[in-house]
């Protein structure tokens, strides 16, 4: 039992992100309303972004903003600076998620304009008629 708790505490960030990701996943496949599906997709993306950012953390490291003249003169201690790469990748991923949300909302507006509803089963019924 203590070993299981030790494993969970050592990797508790992944546990939180998997739970968050599964909330989004359930909203995507279990809900009938298209807006709720879109919100589920946003939660899913947030979980992935948090997962990536958490991989950049180093124990005892500071932020990746250095003192310019100090760094030019004496060099940089790699262990003392957090990993900047996941931050960069997720910065672009956040903007992609905003674009995806915008396009999805536009398409939802078009669907509402045509079928008068955003419930999945009602739309399918109207398509079959």
């Amino acid at each position: 039992m203590e070993q299981v708790v030790a494993v969970i505490v050592a990797k508790y960030n992944y546990w939180l992100y998997v739970i968050l990701m599964m909330i989004g996943f359930y909203a995507m496949i279990g809900k009938r309303n298209l807006v709720k599906k879109l919100l589920g997709m946003n939660i899913f993306q947030t979980a992935i972004i948090l997962l990536y950012v958490s991989t950049g953390v180093k124990r005892g490291a500071g932020i990746p903003i250095l003192d310019k003249y100090e760094a030019l003169k004496h060099g940089v201690d790699v262990a003392g600076v957090a990993n900047p790469l996941p931050h960069v990748l997720m910065l672009t991923a956040i903007v992609v998620s905003v674009s995806v949300t915008g396009v999805a909302l536009a398409i939802l507006l078009r669907i509402y304009r045509r079928y008068g509803t955003l419930e999945e089963d009602e739309i399918l019924e109207k398509i079959r008629q």
Partner: peptide, 8 residues
């Protein structure tokens, strides 16, 4: 360049 920030 010097603080958290940038184009986005």
């Amino acid at each position: 360049h010097y603080s958290p920030g940038g184009g986005f």
